[in-house]
């Protein structure tokens, strides 16, 4: 049995939403551009302990740079990923607005917040300053889309919530396009440690108790 879900990507322009979704190889074979909607939909396949999951991931053609998206983008979404760029404070502040827009249409669907570009040495939003996800009781992940760092975790978290199975795990590691940049593991590890020290959950899969009923 294949589980199929619509997942919408939201967040300011240039926060790395498209880069993030393009890393997943399976989506590159099955993507279609809906010109009348201005939306690119990729079909990402994941193999899990609860069966095969297909996420139809909706990504804009950049119109979020001009303001909010229209309702049709959100309608029917089963889950949402809210992006910001850890090198830009404004994109962090704006996750409140993206959350509000998503909640207005979709209400209590699973959502995760993603802080991207943690490979950058020019970080402006430190882990300790990331309060909004916690206030809204949303899982928070730090990733580097360019270096494939932790890019499967938002999907794993969503899969666990949607199938109500906190033990769900990959039975086959997702395939990624090779990293664009040389990964500075020391830099990433230092940030991971900082986040863990805060104890505010890297929301590592399995640790969630909230119910999406």
């Amino acid at each position: 049995m294949v589980h199929e879900f619509k997942v919408v990507l939201v967040g300011d322009g240039m926060t790395g939403k498209t880069t993030f979704v393009k890393r997943h190889v399976s989506g590159e074979f099955e993507k279609r551009y809906l010109a009348t909607l201005g939306v690119e939909v990729r079909n990402l396949k994941f193999y899990t302990s609860a069966g095969e999951i297909h996420f139809n991931v909706w990504d804009t053609a950049g119109q979020e740079k001009y303001g909010g998206l229209r309702d049709g983008y959100y309608i029917g979404a089963n889950a949402g990923i809210i992006f910001f760029d850890v090198t830009s404070r404004l994109t962090y502040i704006n996750i409140e607005n993206w959350y509000r827009d998503l909640y207005r249409i979709c209400e209590d669907i699973p959502m995760v917040v993603v802080g991207n570009k943690i490979d950058s040495k020019d970080r402006r939003v430190r882990a300790a300053q990331v309060r909004i996800p916690h206030q809204k009781n949303l899982p928070y992940y730090e990733i580097s889309a360019k270096s494939n760092y932790h890019i499967d975790l938002p999907f794993l978290c969503i899969a666990q919530k949607l199938l109500r199975d906190s033990t769900l795990h990959w039975t086959k590691q997702p395939d990624y396009i090779p990293a664009d940049i040389v990964v500075d593991h020391g830099h990433l590890r230092a940030q991971q440690e900082e986040l863990e020290k805060l104890g505010q959950s890297m929301a590592l899969p399995g640790g969630e108790e909230d119910d999406w009923a």
Partner: peptide
Amino acid sequence: MSTDGDRAL
């Protein structure tokens, strides 16, 4: 209109 090299909308 296209901006920053994105698709034209």
